[in-house]
């Protein structure tokens, strides 16, 4: 009972977020639904770069880490590096792919 109660409270407290989740699911499907298969690889790669937004979490972890909390400092630092790899690598690779899609005149 307590757990159900807790979860319900949590849903109410996070209702905005839950609305975003539901709406974004539909937006994501709508946006992708019209993609020609020609663009599947660049699209996957671009989407890959966008989920690199997880780096914001890594920055928050790192930025909140107390000076003596070595676990948070180490893992946070690593997370920032990995997240940046995802973002930068993802966008650059996608750009490289799309650069080749120049229309032939």
């Amino acid at each position: 009972m307590g757990m159900v109660h807790n979860m319900l409270n949590w849903i109410t407290a996070n209702q905005q977020m839950i609305y975003i989740v539901i709406l974004m699911i539909f937006v994501g499907i709508e946006v992708i639904g019209r993609v020609p298969s020609v663009l599947h690889t660049p699209l996957m790669s671009g989407a890959n770069a966008i989920h690199g937004v997880v780096i914001i979490g890594a920055i928050i972890v790192m930025g909140k880490a107390e000076n003596d909390n070595y676990l948070a400092l180490t893992l946070g630092f690593l997370a920032v590096i990995l997240g940046t790899l995802n973002v930068v690598g993802g966008f650059v690779v996608t750009d490289r792919m799309l650069e080749m899609f120049k229309k032939k005149k």
Partner: peptide, 9 residues
């Protein structure tokens, strides 16, 4: 937004 967009797509 970014995460769910990519998750759904």
């Amino acid at each position: 937004t970014g995460g769910i967009l990519v998750g759904a797509a």
